[in-house]
Design a protein around this nucleic acid. Sequence first.
DNA 1: AAGACACTTAGCAAATTACCTAAGTATTTG
DNA 2: CAAATACTTAGGTAATTTGCTAAGTGTCTT
Lengths: 111, 111
Amino acid sequence: MPNHSPIDAAFAALADPTRRAVVERLGRGPASVSTLAADHPIALPSFMQHLRQLESAGLIRSEKQGRVRTCTLSPQALTAVETWIIQRRRDWEARLGRLGAYLDQLEDPNV
Amino acid sequence: MPNHSPIDAAFAALADPTRRAVVERLGRGPASVSTLAADHPIALPSFMQHLRQLESAGLIRSEKQGRVRTCTLSPQALTAVETWIIQRRRDWEARLGRLGAYLDQLEDPNV
DNA sequence: AAGACACTTAGCAAATTACCTAAGTATTTG
DNA sequence: CAAATACTTAGGTAATTTGCTAAGTGTCTT
């Protein structure tokens, strides 16, 4: 089952080091396509595909003025991913808490 | 260029809804392969591939006793992902802070 | 107006992924 | 010990992804 939901697209987009590097770079401010591409040893059309994937995942936006397309980070999609992960941590810690309480009770059955 | 680093594998593993569902389920406690598989409408060998991918990404562990393989969440890999995302949020917020300070100080658009 | 610049489009090849069915291997269980 | 259970292995197909080159399309710059 390929990626259908927005969060699938966000995780998939972040699974590639080139794309994560773009997100890291844009976290420090907007940049043009060619500025971003300069850091990566791949052909420009290949690099543009990565940008398209990031944009369709909602992780970045871009706008063209004249012949230059400027890209910006779009943090809401990152927040969705962050929220999912934090929820997992919560579940995990809640379970550890219950397990600890249970073990405490076994050790000390009647207080 | 496919996944080389551990964090690539973790993001890629989480990009699939079946695999995320397994992580969610294991957050509430360990479970056997067939228990996990019961929630998903795919053939068992296909499901096992997902488990293998989760395990090789370090997101879960599993151990076989008798004929039953029990899977557990392995939270460190999730922490690595969480750390990456939180760092991006920090960068973003630091930049907003600098931008705000700059705008407060005076005008002049552009970056 | 000519050429440089910054992308864009088109089309193609190799590698990966996500499924499947069929047939195996160990372990219980009756 | 035979049958059921719980995976496992083997092998195959279709779709997706990631990369490329070559050839556009608009927009400055000179």
